[in-house]
Computed example of a mutant assay.
Amino acid sequence: MTAVTAGRLAGWIAASLVLVVVPAGAQVIGTGLSSNTLNGAAPYGSPIRDNRVYIHGILNQFEGRSGDGNYFRWDGEAWAGDDWNRIWLKSEGRDNADRRGRVSDGDQELLYDRPISRYFDVQAGLRYDLDNGTSRTWAALGIQGLAIDFWNVEATVYASDRGDYALRTNAYYDLYLMQRLILQPQFETNWYTKKDQGRGVGAGLSDIDTGLRLRYDITRKFAPYVGVAYQRFLGGTENLTRAQGGRPNDVRFLFGIRLWY
């Protein structure tokens, strides 16, 4: 092989390596190759504008609770928007099958959501209590996100059209026992500044609702579960619950499905 032939072969090999290793459209300094992707910006190129609108919905609780009488409970949320601005819809309540289908604990919220840090969003909007009880309208302001050890937490303050104030906190955690088997502890509290006979709540800490659910992810979007739930009414709410024939301590077995879109 002559020196000229060897030189040409080395040149072809070098050019082939450049074409294979360098991504299409990239700019390589000193090669003469140009690009309209990186435009020479360091280290990762020019920012990509992404204003696409996404839609997501999840039913965390869609369950029947069995004990001294049975009832059905739901708790879900959905949002639409981009990475910075979203509209949230939250809904929860229960259908008391043992009371001729009367709906109670109905809570519907329409909120504007915007991130304030890497792990937390601030939310503001309206809450409307819609069920068989006296309806109430509230202004809402709260935060929602991931706390230490990846607990999903939320805390919201409400101000009603009657001059009352309320606070709701909720936290849950997904403990992966296996890739598809998840144990989820959950803890919720409700607080009110004034007694509200129409809603059946008293001043102070009104109730605690806790649960322990074991679910199996058949798919990420469909997961049946079983578990146990405990609800405890306190203070003035306990007295109103007793007066209406309810139980201040309520332990129930539950079964349901978790869905998301």
Rank of each mutant, 00 (worst) to 15 (best):
A3L: 06
V4H: 08
T5F: 07
A6E: 12
A6M: 11
G7D: 10
G11F: 10
A15I: 01
L17I: 10
V20N: 15
V21W: 01
V21T: 12
V22T: 11
A26C: 10
Q27R: 12
T31W: 02
S35D: 08
T37L: 09
L38E: 08
G40E: 09
G40F: 14
A42M: 08
Y44F: 11
S46M: 05
I48A: 08
N51M: 06
R52M: 02
V53Q: 13
Q61Y: 00
G69A: 05
F72V: 01
G81W: 02
W84D: 09
K90A: 04
E92D: 11
E92R: 15
G93R: 06
R94D: 12
G101E: 03
S104T: 15
G106I: 10
L110T: 13
I116S: 02
S117P: 05
S117E: 13
Y119W: 09
V122R: 02
Y128S: 09
D131H: 09
G133A: 15
T137D: 11
G142V: 03
I143R: 11
I143Q: 09
Q144R: 15
A155D: 08
V157C: 10
G163Y: 01
D164V: 04
Y165A: 06
L167E: 03
L167A: 04
Y172S: 02
D174K: 05
L177Y: 00
M178D: 01
Q179N: 12
L181N: 13
L183I: 09
F187T: 01
T189D: 00
T193N: 13
T193L: 01
T193R: 01
K195R: 04
V201E: 00
G202S: 03
A203E: 01
A203D: 05
A203H: 02
D207V: 09
D209T: 03
L212S: 06
Y216I: 03
I218S: 07
R220N: 12
P224T: 13
V226A: 11
G227K: 14
G227S: 09
Q231Y: 11
R232M: 10
G236V: 06
T237C: 05
T237A: 02
L240W: 00
R247T: 10
I257D: 08
I257Q: 01
R258H: 12
L259E: 07
L259M: 09
Y261I: 07
